[in-house]
Amino acid sequence: MGDSQADAAGQWKIGIGPGIMVAPTFPGSSSVKAYPLPAQDISWNNRVFSQGPDVLGINVLRGKDYHVGSSISLDFQSRTSSDDPRLHGLPNVHCGPKLRLFADYTWWAFTGSAAMYQDIGGTGQGRTVTTDLVASVPVGRLLLSIGPGFTWADAQYTRTFFGITAVQSAASHLPQYQTGSGIRDVHMNVDATYDFSRRWSSALALTAGRLERYAAASPITESRFELTAVAAVSYRF
């Protein structure tokens, strides 16, 4: 009985701490907004997990070098007319949950990943697909990962955040703008994790991106450059 309980306990990995995310106030904004958030990293048997914005997920397939699965993820992308005077007359876009389908594979120091995000909260944010390739290098207690990626967005997403209908144009005095599906952005990821001890660690994730196509040319867009940063400190039980 004691051994089985120890084995069951050993299948759990639990890390909890405070975190903060800094992101554009709205897609295409030249200003940023800070969001406090929990920095949880909880998993059971490398199968069920809760990590960062992924509230609850499952690795349907998993191995030493790969994962394939799904999760319910929170997305903070939103927009309100109070964010910027230029947005008056445009509809608000609320944040909400998304279904995330993902796959990743690691070979030596390189990890390739792809994730599809589907709006399931009725916020009009449609579907996006993000692909990334990073190289990871351990330096003592520091693990540094860096690499490029891009995001594709469907027509519903670009219409919600970057399109302007005739009615919206009359209300906002911005020109009409029609959008479609295509590359939303290209970006570079830089992630750093440092272990202070066996229990305490810190993490910093930076994503610097450049809006493309419909997102770049929209009258709503103030800046093509996007910077998102997440910092956290966690304690492992």
Score class of each variant (00 low, 15 high):
31 S>M: 11
65 D>H: 15
63 G>E: 01
121 G>V: 00
127 R>F: 08
234 S>G: 12
154 D>W: 07
44 W>Y: 15
29 S>F: 08
174 L>Y: 00
130 T>N: 11
64 K>I: 10
61 L>E: 02
100 R>S: 12
186 V>C: 07
50 S>R: 04
184 R>G: 06
233 V>S: 00
142 L>D: 02
111 T>Q: 11
202 S>T: 15
182 G>R: 00
209 G>M: 05
173 H>N: 15
22 V>T: 08
20 I>S: 11
236 R>Y: 00
147 G>I: 02
132 D>F: 03
166 A>S: 15
199 R>N: 05
17 G>N: 03
232 A>S: 15
15 G>M: 10
232 A>R: 08
69 G>E: 03
52 G>C: 04
193 T>F: 02
82 S>C: 01
40 Q>Y: 12
5 Q>M: 14
160 T>P: 03
147 G>Q: 02
192 A>M: 07
31 S>N: 14
93 V>W: 10
50 S>T: 08
169 S>M: 06
233 V>F: 02
105 Y>E: 04
8 A>Q: 09
88 H>G: 07
165 T>L: 06
228 T>C: 02
169 S>K: 07
70 S>V: 15
82 S>I: 05
56 L>P: 09
8 A>F: 12
100 R>Y: 04
83 D>V: 07
101 L>A: 13
16 I>G: 00
115 A>L: 08
139 V>M: 11
147 G>E: 00
98 K>I: 08
12 W>K: 06
137 V>C: 10
11 Q>M: 13
197 S>V: 00
112 G>L: 07
60 V>F: 09
72 I>M: 13
134 V>G: 01
205 A>E: 10
162 F>D: 06
80 T>E: 13
235 Y>L: 07
122 G>C: 04
69 G>T: 02
12 W>T: 01
150 F>P: 01
23 A>P: 00
125 Q>N: 11
167 V>E: 11
181 S>E: 11
207 T>K: 14
164 I>H: 06
225 F>H: 10
37 L>S: 10
136 S>V: 03
165 T>V: 09
191 D>Y: 12
75 D>Y: 02
159 R>I: 00
72 I>G: 05
87 L>P: 03
81 S>C: 04
171 A>W: 05
209 G>A: 12
33 K>A: 11
188 M>Y: 05
185 D>S: 14
12 W>D: 03
133 L>G: 09
90 L>N: 04
148 P>E: 04
4 S>T: 14
61 L>G: 09
